[in-house]
Design a protein around this nucleic acid. Sequence first.
RNA 1: GGAGAGGUGGCUGAGUGGUCGAAAGCGGCGGUCUUGAAAACCGUUGAAGGGUUUAUUCCUUCCGGGGGUUCGAAUCCCUCCCUCUCCGCCA
Length: 425
Amino acid sequence: MLDPKVFRQKINDLQEKLKLRNFTIDLDWLQALEAERKILQSQTQALQNERNVLSKQIGQKKAKGENTEDSLAKGEKIAKALQEKEEALKSLQKKLWDFQTTVPNLPHVSVPPGKNPLDNLEVRKWKEPPLFPFEPLDHIALGKRLHGIDFDQATRIAGSRFVILNGPVAELHRALTNWMLDVHTKEHGYTEVYVPYLVNENSLFGTGQLPKFESELFKIERDPPYYLIPTAEVPVTNLVRERILEAEALPLKWVSHTPCFRSEAGSYGKDLHGMIRQHQFEKVELVQVVRPEHSYKILEELTSHAETILKKLELPYRVIALCGGDLGFAAAKTYDLEVWLPSQKIYREISSCSNFESFQARRLEARWRETPSAKPDYVHTLNGSGLAVGRTLIALMENYQDQNGNIAIPAVLHPYMKGITHIEK
RNA sequence: GGAGAGGUGGCUGAGUGGUCGAAAGCGGCGGUCUUGAAAACCGUUGAAGGGUUUAUUCCUUCCGGGGGUUCGAAUCCCUCCCUCUCCGCCA
């Protein structure tokens, strides 16, 4: 979340910046609430002070054996008045908190202006989309032909938006995962972490999924509830929750492979067919925790790490800078990587790399300090998919198909596929 | 799942109703000593928030979370969470 001070001091500034992402706040309402808070808080604190002073006096009198009847009566009065003020203040502060925790992050100055995905800016493109001398099949048809992808069985077992992979295609899916993890750990300096797939509410609050986006999550009803992670970002970023990190510990670079679970409520009709949008999918996620002054340099670096995967697979892609209106709730700046899908003749999102600045850190209480005696400050957090495995599988199948519907396996994956070079019927 | 123990500052750990934001030790920082360092000694050392100001001062809150009793709670009561030990079960 944002620094609470901006709601008190730089309110017009705030309004301007939030407009860039289609978010408006009721200034009059907020300022009235703030004014009330100020008065109420001062009164409450004054009463607390009176109570503390008096209580101390009573203690001293009792020690000396003096009469305390008058003081006790006075104390009772204060306690009563104080209780009223405290309750009023508490409910007011809850109102402010509820509001503040649902205000999105502010876009970085370099974020392109715009309202919707059409205003996103193409930053660069890599490799021309291939020209097929035949009509390329989509992954659904390819998967069916090779008995590698089965949606019907998945529907029977679980329901819609699930998939079953079979034989060499399942192996390719696993090979991709292992290979990506190796590239990031061996070539990019990330440390692999294995994390819980069920998390508590605090973790989801920390990274910004709660309280606003509960409908997109799968919840396990118990007391307290668990949630299935929508991305490894949640458990991994929460590794720094409520910690004060020493300067030499930064940057922290983690890579984690997890399944991701999304209920995608409200998205019905979108990508209804195929593996594009599933309730369960695999992702290799990159997370970095860095000093604030480095975070934009790191965003470029982290994005390039995700790009490396596409380059090594020789898949055509482009990099998009999301405009203000398309930015996710917690992000200050985001690059999407979009891979070419020959069957649809469009680029589809396969990775999203974001700098959250201190937005998540403030929710997480994740801080660092220059020296052990220095004042702690919030870290900056970043993450990006490196990459979404299911979508990579699709892109690979579609881009590497031949006219018979067989699939060549890119050379970098051969060592991960027991030497298999093609998937054939 | 059953039985027991426990959650206190960066760490270890004392504290069962009143000057406790909290002893002591370790660690950190500053200093004395030293050519330098170590040791020793002395001093110092939590976070968040608010008011007033811009450089000082004042105040509040925080001893796992929430609630209660009381003039006053780290300390008493209720409740939840978590950790550890033993037993049971289990990959």
